[in-house]
Design a protein around this nucleic acid. Structure first.
Length: 574
DNA sequence: TAGCGGTGTGC
DNA sequence: GCACACC
DNA sequence: GCTA
């Protein structure tokens, strides 16, 4: 929020006169982060703190919600998603007074700060004023207490605590940010007035957050109460493979190499059912823009065919399958590709199966094209690319950006869905259910409110969320492959070969997983190898969690597919 | 305008 | 058997 | 979204 003037940091209430605005008397505030940039949120939080406002560390304490919220509906959604049960509160009978300059009564009761470094704020506790209408807040909302960890959460609920029967209800307000701006401009609290988007009576508040914990810490607790047979829990204290790999004499001295270039792993299709997120086409402004640009460029590009390099053979021959053509790990069109990949991710997260598949072919085709794309006709000739691919390229070429991508990237819902989608075992459908049905917005919500409805792999996925997102440097890929070979050799003999394939083989500097083909000149020697190998690696604790194991290919004998040797679809992790 | 994979898991 | 997720 |  650039509109907020910078003010000297008031570390202590004694110095709040440095910044004129004193918000120490308003009830606990929570920011509704939707539609804000990250730095905007930081600014607002900073401002609130400087002005002495109580920023909740636990939404369950909040009474005031500040956000970019336009409608009552959205406000209700935001509250519901935070596990508030609310109903619209009727307008107060006494009508609003015009803006008032009077300072709020304040500073009677000291509150302990909770977690933040902010100095204690003070708050009027015995005035019956409300935050309504023209009245200036401090609503001494009855029953409001410090979000101190010492006090049992339910005491925050007004009804039982209130000495004021007249103000019986637990009310919450959703305010537009511009209220804060107005206060800053005025240098004092201004009437809520038109800044109130929603006023609700709380029927039920969410359960309080426990002390802030890391996911793993919370997990450990949840684990205790869960069934003791849960493999996640049983193995949680195992040393990581990395630690042990480093300690292993065989692999210890391999050098670590780390670059950063990496392309998103090839995205695979997911099941489809309905979508609510806009595809680029749906946006009317974009549609017209697209038409315009297309027209513009068609003529603009006319007659430049000589600039187009002769198409590679796979283009001429309309080779459809990406496995039939060479694709460099780092081609000349990565910048455009990353944009298209974003669009595909939007399709994935909206659970648009066909769209996802379509973008897969487009992406794969462009990724295999060995020249820097310059003319739309080049794209049009690629297999799997047509009108849409061309229009995206034209838009990108002409404006340097793609509206559909901008829309996706600034969409708060998409960010949350993407975060859930990052959990191993959670696809678009489940991510959407977490958000739209359960109103969860962060991993902690899952851990605290939904742990029991996760299946086994999803629990592993949440527990190791960050670890699974971590890329593996080439040297480490080699170490892991080395360990696999050592054990395979132990099971058979040293004619075993372990070939690293996948992203590593394509030269990527970091991998998301380790793909290997384990083989042996004697075909029979590979029979049942994968199963034995996995079990042995499990015994020796190199494998700590088995996510899935697919044996179907190995089971149909060693002879089935003519020119495919044995391969492991080794789907075991960590 | 239909059709766009194969396999394992969990309910 | 069906829904879902992974590669 | 694209192909057959």
């Amino acid at each position: 929020m650039n509109t907020i003037p910078s003010q000297p940091l008031a570390k202590n209430v004694m110095h709040t006169n440095e910044s004129r605005l004193d918000l120490s008397s308003i009830p606990p505030v929570s920011i509704l982060s939707a539609h804000f940039e990250d730095d905007e949120i930081d600014d607002i939080k900073t401002t609130l703190r400087r002005c002495g406002a109580t920023l909740t560390t636990d939404v369950s304490d909040a009474k005031l919600f500040i956000g970019k919220v336009g409608t009552t509906r959205r406000a209700e959604f935001e509250l519901r998603s935070r596990k508030f049960k609310v109903e619209a509160a009727p307008e107060p009978s006494h009508d609003s007074r015009p803006d008032s300059n009077e300072e709020p009564p304040n500073k009677k009761r000291k509150l302990s700060s909770s977690g933040s470094s902010r100095a204690p704020i003070v708050m009027d506790n015995d005035s019956g004023s409300t935050i309504e209408g023209g009245q200036i807040a401090p609503p001494s909302v009855p029953g409001y207490r410090s979000p101190s960890t010492a006090s049992p959460p339910n005491e925050n609920l007004s009804t039982s605590y209130s000495k004021e029967p007249s103000i019986h209800d637990d009310l919450v307000w959703v305010l537009k940010v511009d209220w804060l701006d107005a206060c800053l401009a005025a240098g004092h609290l201004v009437a809520l007035g038109e800044h109130v988007v929603y006023r609700g009576r709380v029927i039920e508040r969410p359960p309080p957050r426990l002390v802030h914990k890391s996911i793993k810490a919370v997990f450990a607790e949840v684990g205790k109460s869960a069934s003791g047979a849960d493999p996640v829990i049983q193995q949680q204290s195992n040393p990581s493979i990395i630690e042990r790999a480093k300690a292993d004499p065989v692999v210890a001295d391999l050098s670590q190499n780390s670059h950063q270039r990496q392309r998103a792993a090839q995205l695979q299709s997911r099941r489809f059912e309905g979508s609510s997120f806009a595809s680029g086409n749906r946006n009317p402004t974009f549609t017209s823009q697209k038409a315009h640009l297309l027209q513009q460029t068609t003529s603009e590009y006319e007659g430049e065919d000589s600039d187009i390099p002769p198409p590679p053979n796979w283009v001429k021959e309309r080779i459809q399958y990406s496995c039939q053509r060479f694709t460099p790990a780092d081609g000349p069109n990565e910048d455009f590709l990353s944009q298209v990949e974003q669009i595909q991710m939007a399709r994935i997260l909206t659970d648009d199966e066909t769209g996802t598949r379509a973008y897969s072919t487009i992406i794969a085709s462009i990724a295999a094209y060995p020249f820097k794309l310059s003319h739309p006709r080049e794209i049009a000739q690629l297999p799997g690319c047509d009108e849409k691919a061309v229009s995206l390229f034209v838009e990108w070429k002409n404006t340097g950006r793609i509206q559909a991508v901008e829309d996706y990237e600034s969409d708060e819902d998409m960010k949350i869905l993407h975060m859930f989608f990052g959990i191993w075992g959670v696809g678009a459908k489940t991510a959407r259910r977490y958000y739209y049905n359960n109103f969860w917005r962060e991993l902690d919500d899952i851990v605290e409110h939904g742990w029991d409805e996760l299946d086994r792999v999803q629990q592993i996925g949440v527990k190791y969320y960050d670890d699974f997102l971590q890329k593996i440097p080439r040297a480490e890929v080699e170490q892991i492959a080395g360990i696999i070979r050592r054990y395979a050799v132990r099971l058979r003999d040293n004619r075993i070969t372990v070939t690293i394939v996948g992203g590593y083989r394509r030269g990527k500097s970091e991998s998301g997983d380790v793909d290997v083909i384990i083989s042996h000149p004697d075909l029979g020697a590979t029979a049942g190898l994968v199963k034995d190998l996995v079990e042995l690696l499990e015994d020796d604790l190199w494998i700590t969690h088995r996510l899935t194991l697919s044996l179907k290919n190995t089971q149909r004998g060693q002879t089935t597919l003519p020119f495919c040797t044995n391969k492991t679809s080794a789907a075991t992790k960590i």
